[in-house]
């Protein structure tokens, strides 16, 4: 299984760099990954809010929520979502949140 070293720690990831085990996630992981997903500098309050929201939903339902729901529950629009995560919610946001990779046309 591929691994990735971020901020001095080794993580097991899939071939596209998504974390294998939701519970191995920590905040350093998200921060260290940010730059590879085109996010400059330190993650902001808005980033963390979304990351924790995604993790909570995933823990309950085993999948990320519908994008419309992400926006609605967090009071943001799609444009803002892409500003926060330029590589997109399915790729960037899920990756930083330690979710498994969404498959299919997402």
């Amino acid at each position: 299984m591929p691994t990735i070293e971020l901020a001095g720690k080794t993580y097991e990831v899939d071939e596209d760099g998504f974390l294998e085990d939701l519970d191995k996630w920590n905040e350093e992981f998200a921060q260290a990954y940010a730059s590879t997903e085109d996010i400059q500098g330190t993650l902001t309050e808005e980033h963390w809010k979304l990351i924790h929201y995604l993790r909570n939903y995933f823990q309950q339902f085993g999948i990320a929520p519908m994008i419309r729901k992400v926006c609605k529950d967090n009071g943001i629009d799609m444009k803002k979502l892409y500003e926060l995560f330029p590589t997109g919610p399915a790729k960037g946001a899920c990756k930083l949140a330690g979710l498994s990779k969404p498959t299919g046309c997402v």
Partner: peptide, 16 residues
């Protein structure tokens, strides 16, 4: 299913 959406999440999405 191809996007691995579990039934509970599917129903939650329909409700939404």
């Amino acid at each position: 299913n191809t996007s691995s959406i579990p039934p509970a999440a599917f129903i939650d999405t329909l409700d939404f």
